[in-house]
Simulated scan of single mutants.
Amino acid sequence: MTPQASRPLRTADVARESGWSVQQVRDLERLGVLPPAARSANGYRSYGPEHVRALRAYRGLASAAGPVVARRLLAEAMTGTLTDVAAAIGAVHVRLAGERDEALRARAALGAIEGEESGPDADVMTITQLAAALGVRTSTLRFWEQEGLAVPERVTTLRARQYGPAAIREARIVAALRSSGYGIPAVRDVVGSLRRLPGVDEGIAEARLILDRRLDQIATRTVALLRAGADLAAVLDPAGT
């Protein structure tokens, strides 16, 4: 639906056109997401198409980068220069591209793990060796252990940790997921699924499915950012719409 340009818009009109509630429109105006509304003689707010576009831009930015970043970007758009706003939007694109690259690297790591064979004669690693192989600190492995992730198969009387093939593989999967931005609770759920599944391949397939869902989410956020960019451009340059 195209905003009515021939008459001022009421709060309810803007809410209907943008998909937000009346209270959300008022709250977002208060937070600086919208240009200040004009006031009629009787004190009622009076909006225009630029307010609808700003709200649509905010929705896309919030989906792509989160509400805090979206509010900052819209507030900057009201007061900053076109160059500054374009740079901020570009930074969000770069961040999304980085998240996508991390997820793809994690998928590649899972593929490498899946292609390996580990038998009873495979090497056992100390915590120092495993940390070096994963590119993390030994304190990180201890933290993962406390959280129920990548648990060593044996701890000697001198508190030396030893990781066998299964524990090493699990640690590598944890590292792959963590490097892709997954928090500890989400990784714990994955590891729990891996342990319940009958074989290594099934566990890795489950982890890959989770990464595929993350890639889908990043793609959705990227499309939302593209749409928000078009709406934001219309806010910055109404004459070009």
Rank of each mutant, 00 (worst) to 15 (best):
E29L: 09
L34C: 07
G60C: 10
A37Y: 09
R39G: 05
A37G: 04
G60P: 12
L31Y: 02
L34H: 09
L31M: 08
D27K: 00
P35K: 04
P35E: 02
S40G: 15
A41S: 14
R53I: 00
D27Y: 15
P35N: 00
R53T: 05
L31F: 03
H51M: 02
R56D: 11
A38L: 15
G32I: 14
A54S: 14
V52H: 08
R39P: 03
A57E: 12
R30W: 11
A54G: 13
V52Q: 04
R59Y: 05
V52M: 07
A37D: 01
R53W: 14
S40P: 06
E50M: 03
A57L: 13
Y44I: 06
L55W: 14
E50Y: 00
L28I: 11
G60R: 03
N42I: 00
R30F: 10
R45G: 02
P36D: 03
R53N: 08
P36M: 06
P49F: 02
L28Y: 15
G43P: 13
H51A: 03
Y58V: 03
A57M: 06
Y58Q: 05
G32Q: 03
R39E: 00
Y47E: 04
L55E: 05
L55I: 08
E50T: 08
A54F: 01
A38M: 07
R39H: 05
S46G: 08
A38F: 03
G43M: 07
R26M: 03
G32Y: 03
Y47G: 01
N42C: 04
R59M: 00
R53P: 00
R30Q: 15
G43E: 02
A37S: 10
A57G: 10
R39L: 15
G48T: 01
L34K: 02
Y58S: 01
Y47I: 07
L34P: 06
